[in-house]
Design a protein around this nucleic acid. Structure first.
Lengths: 215, 215
DNA sequence: TCGTTTTCTGACCGTATGGTCAAGACGCAG
DNA sequence: CTGCGTCTTGACCATACGGTCAGAAAACGA
């Protein structure tokens, strides 16, 4: 590697630091605004204000509103897929599915905005991430269905339809993020406490694990 | 009743007929557009085109975009509450909850657009129907929780947390509407067939009813 | 200090949107 | 036909939005 190239790399790294910090600032603000207003209702001005930057600066880092939105959706999708690790490496459904429920409930708690953005995107027909649904998500789903079917064949759980079990897991865990406002309203207007989150996790796991005969 | 009043009533009835027909046309179009684009992304022009009416005509029947949206949300909320009847008048959880699942799955199938509008509204903090959540929904929820608790006390089902059971019912059944596009994509791009809908209903009921010890 | 690259930002632009309005069409009772 | 209330609609308006741009400022290596 010639010296000039190394210099360039260092310079790039430094530049990248500023860039990354601002991109993070913008992405955080965007995630929140997109979640609370939807793509159509979100404005670049609102995101800029929340990020504490002038609007023109947003367009310096993200050329268009769509590009910014795409990045937000991709980010949450990656977090979402990471929860799969809880699923793998488990020999029995109680461990695998129980761990998956815990992981996804934790995501709902820690990333409620991202979860809502994802939900809204899918509800509107996934105009931006349709290819992800057809490739990554489909592969992921097929793989887990095989795992669950294996447990059924091994007599470790009742012979339910694995696909609908997966849908139930997704639905139930995401509900605590997507409908968090409704849940909060029904909880005397207060967010769920630590104890209540534990109770929610335990309740979901209890019903589902017993429901599939793995309790 | 004086004759003049009768005449007025007939006239009103005729007028109302036209009015109701056009309102229905507009509301159907609006429900679809709001579901597919969100409130912010929806435009009066789009709704007008889908309804086959000039845009100015929409403003004759609904003064503002918000008024139109409010009506759409109220409509789905009423349908949604009607499913409660399946819940009442049941003496055991298998009948009551099983019937409720059937009813809500049917709503997801027949009113996917309304379901999505409702979901988006709640996800964005229920700016329009917050009062419904605090009054009607809260009362409804408290009532069903008492019913479920009664079943538990009578030993008809396992002692799970009724509130989280309700959330699971809502989440799972609405998922088939709100995430219908994702489900369709994972179903080789085709909508669920009659058989697949039956399978979904049966799977959901099987897991939940067994999960609460009422199978 | 100088030169270069990256970052920042106010001012600006074309367009699309929600909403208005006035004029007319239509239905209908007298 | 006439008069009256309801409905219809093209044209129009003010505003807000996404996006652009030129030039200033800052960062940084030499």
């Amino acid at each position: 590697m010639p010296p000039s190239a190394q210099v360039t790399r260092i310079k790039t790294a430094r530049r990248t630091e500023i860039r990354r910090e601002n991109e993070r600032l913008i992405l955080d603000a965007a995630e929140r605004v997109f979640a609370e207003a939807g793509f159509g209702g979100a404005t670049m001005q609102l995101i800029a204000d929340l990020a504490g930057l002038p609007k023109a600066n947003l367009h310096y880092y993200f050329p268009t509103k769509e590009a910014l939105y795409r990045r937000v959706v991709q980010n949450i999708f990656e977090i979402w897929l990471d929860a799969a690790s809880s699923f793998d490496g488990a020999d029995d459904p109680a461990t695998g599915i129980g761990g998956y429920i815990d992981a996804k409930m934790e995501i709902s708690r820690r990333h409620p905005f991202g979860s809502k953005v994802w939900a809204a995107e899918v509800m509107q027909g996934a105009p931006v991430i349709q290819d992800y649904l057809e490739t990554t998500l489909k592969d992921w789903t097929d793989g887990r269905i095989r795992v669950i079917q294996g447990w059924i064949d091994a007599g470790k759980m009742a012979p339910i339809n694995p696909r609908h079990l997966l849908y139930m897991l997704w639905a139930t865990t995401q509900h605590y993020a997507d409908f968090g406002h409704q849940i909060e309203t029904l909880n005397h207007g207060k967010p769920l406490s630590d104890r209540q989150w534990s109770d929610a996790k335990a309740s979901v796991k209890a019903i589902i694990l017993r429901g599939i005969g793995a309790a």
